[in-house]
Design a protein around this nucleic acid. Structure first.
Lengths: 218, 218
DNA sequence: GTTTTGGATTTTGTATTTAATATTTCTTAC
DNA sequence: GTAAGAAATATTAAATACAAAATCCAAAAC
């Protein structure tokens, strides 16, 4: 691993292990060998331990005292459930946005969405982030914190793996924008909930395509 | 600190620091001195560090690389917001319970509530936990996990500090029980949301009574 | 008198070491 | 041949050691 700025090593390792898990390199139930990671990344076990604690809190890793850390057993139902929760909170925030967005924010939302709808694949991810970022900006602090946490412990970037997720996302965002512009609080919530429900289904598909659920049998 | 079973030291320290924060011993914004805690508890910095990472993920502590760990700046609005989120998720689960509880579960819920309503102060906490535990048992895995997390990073046990929280809680639970027994999905959700909203207000009162918001000025 | 700068001190982040527990393997008894 | 138990091995959790960065404090410049 390239020499990382001192003081953020643990975070770097978190990203590494998280990616390994979400990309299916480490299978659910598999034991996470601290020494192996340390040798591979050329770091000591101290930051690795801290990284595993973070991932444990995120729910991607299960730590059993004196036994070690294991990749969490995640089922399709867990992913669906997770997105459902994500949608529940996001829906609440979308409702807030429909109520409290200023005219400037409405215009900006429309602008982002227009670019999103017209964008090439490469910008999709960025514009998608901008879209949700703007909506979530009206949420109170703790809610924003929870949304960040819910987003982190999840596979993202399905624009590549799920074929027509692009079109579906554009449609979903469109309905959300429409509802917020109309200041229809309930419709905004429902549209956001639906959008994230769909995203959950897409996530399961994406993970399936990557062979995420296939168990290690050796 | 009494000698703790090896392998759970970090968790023990998490509890200790969390209590220190929620009891107002450590003030928001205050720096958390790792060496001081280590000396006081007679442990090395390794498990303390892991504890701080956990608390950082919970949002009770803010870790700044190379600067150290600080008690998070929590405002009354944050606590209200937190309980609102807690209520949002719990409400969803209450709705599930209203839909899917078996007759046995309904009877058990009624039983717990009856004992709760009649109980002395000492049992209130335990019966309150049993109540929510039973309702939450119908939630899918990830939702239960989130509820546990939301509950942990929050001050609990306001039965002592907020004078008539007892009565209010009994009333709140009563409405929830009624709605679930009637299998009224929407009423169950609303009742649970209201209950946790009230709990949030009580929490702020309790924290105020403890002088939680008073800043350290030395 | 205030601000800036440079070194001393403290404290963090990571590495290394030590001690304890879990796991595996091998032996022995049935 | 299988099962139980004991020794060997491996791996974790915690303690200690060390290096780098941040903070503190004092002296000097403005």
């Amino acid at each position: 691993m390239a020499p990382i700025k001192r003081g953020a090593l643990a975070e770097e390792i978190v990203s590494y292990i998280r990616e390994q898990i979400l990309e299916g390199e480490m299978k659910p139930g598999e034991k996470i060998d601290q020494d192996a990671i340390g040798e591979f990344l050329d770091v000591s076990r101290s930051p690795i331990r801290e990284a595993l604690v973070v991932l444990g809190q995120e729910g991607l890793v299960v730590i059993t005292p004196r036994r070690g850390a294991f990749v969490a057993e995640i089922s399709p139902d867990d992913v669906i459930d997770h997105y459902e929760l994500f949608g529940l909170v996001s829906g609440r925030v979308a409702a807030m946005a429909a109520e409290s967005f200023t005219d400037e924010q409405l215009a900006e939302l429309q602008g982002i969405h227009d670019r999103f709808a017209a964008s090439s694949n490469d910008d999709h991810f960025k514009l998608n982030e901008e879209f949700h970022q703007l909506v979530n900006s009206v949420a109170p602090r703790r809610t924003r914190w929870l949304l960040r946490n819910l987003q982190r412990s999840i596979p993202s970037g399905f624009f590549e793996t799920t074929p027509d997720w692009d079109a579906q996302a554009v449609r979903g965002h469109g309905e959300i924008v429409e509802a917020i512009l109309a200041r229809d609080v309930d419709a905004a919530r429902r549209a956001m909930e639906t959008h994230l429900h769909d995203a959950g289904v897409a996530a399961v598909e994406g993970l399936t395509a990557k062979g995420f659920w296939e168990t290690e049998d050796d």
